[in-house]
Simulated scan of single mutants.
Amino acid sequence: MSDASTSLHEALARVVLAGRELPDVLDEVVRIARGAIPGAEATSVTLIRGDRSFTAAFDGQLAMDADELQYERGYGPCMDAARAGETFLVEDMTIDDRWPDYARHAAERGVRSSLSTPLPFQGATIGALNNYSTRVGGFTPADAALAEEVAAFVAVVVGNAEAASRAMEDAANMRRAMATRAVIEQAKGILMERHKITGDQAFTVLTHASQRRNVKLRDVADELVATGELRAG
């Protein structure tokens, strides 16, 4: 392991994850990447969600400008790296013919070379780590190796954060569903006691009231439990 790689690992190991929002963590990581990758003069993280691409963090306006040029066109090295799961190195924007319109405009903004590395997570690619330079041939194979290490770290951080967010959302949905079921059962019990009907019949009464008033079944049940009244319409 090279000294640069060792220093990078040590810096990433010091990143505190607990109790922090994802954007704060990514801001710190892109600063580390920009400082650790010798050729990088500006660094960003692109995330792709369905058809939407966006910059989740950046260090250096050059990176944000170059990213936006790609989002406007729907293609470019950072987007292709994120979609295809491949690393894309642009040695010279003025002669690269893979994305000619983007490359021309990027060169006009001062970008001469770039290195876009995919973010792999659980068999998929969720985005890209982008590094930009104002020099032709600004990135070496050693830079690419360091970028891969940062990209792997970013992918795990983003993937785990989103998995945790989904788990929290699922738990919240479950709690809401349980609360809804509980209040409906209470309302059914009131109707069963009041009218000497079965549970199925009580549920039908609530459903009809919901349909006639064009309000949610949960709201009808809430009102009955709170007021003891069931308005028909």
Rank of each mutant, 00 (worst) to 15 (best):
Ala11Gly: 05
Ala11Asn: 11
Leu12Gln: 08
Gly19Cys: 08
Glu21Asp: 09
Leu22Glu: 07
Asp24Phe: 00
Val25Ser: 12
Asp27Gly: 15
Glu28Trp: 02
Glu28Val: 10
Val29Met: 04
Val30Arg: 03
Ile32Thr: 00
Ile32Leu: 00
Ile37Phe: 00
Val45Asp: 03
Thr46Asn: 13
Thr46Ala: 05
Leu47Glu: 10
Gly50Trp: 03
Asp51Gly: 12
Arg52His: 14
Thr55Asn: 11
Ala56Val: 08
Ala57Lys: 11
Asp59Asn: 14
Asp59Phe: 00
Asp59Ser: 15
Gly60Glu: 07
Leu62Tyr: 11
Leu62Gly: 14
Leu62Asp: 13
Ala63His: 10
Met64Leu: 15
Asp65Tyr: 01
Asp67Asn: 15
Leu69Lys: 11
Tyr71Phe: 14
Arg73Trp: 01
Arg73Ala: 11
Gly74Lys: 08
Met79Ser: 05
Met79Asp: 09
Asp80Thr: 13
Ala82Tyr: 04
Glu86Thr: 15
Glu86Ala: 13
Phe88Ser: 07
Leu89Phe: 09
Val90Cys: 10
Val90Asn: 08
Val90Thr: 14
Asp92Ser: 05
Thr94Asn: 03
Ile95Thr: 15
Ile95Ala: 02
Asp97Val: 01
Arg98Ile: 10
Asp101Glu: 14
His105Gln: 15
Ala107Val: 02
Ala107Pro: 07
Glu108Cys: 01
Arg109Asp: 09
Arg109Lys: 15
Ser113His: 07
Ser113Ile: 01
Ser114Ala: 13
Ser114Thr: 11
Ser114Pro: 04
Pro120Arg: 02
Phe121Asp: 12
Gln122Trp: 04
Gly123Asp: 02
Thr125Cys: 12
Gly127Tyr: 02
Asn130Asp: 15
Gly137Pro: 12
Gly137Ile: 04
Gly138Gln: 04
Phe139Leu: 04
Thr140Phe: 03
Thr140Pro: 11
Ala142Asn: 08
Asp143Trp: 10
Ala144Glu: 15
Leu146Ser: 04
Leu146Pro: 10
Glu148Asp: 14
Glu149Met: 06
Ala151Arg: 12
Ala151Asn: 11
Phe153Ser: 00
Val154Asp: 08
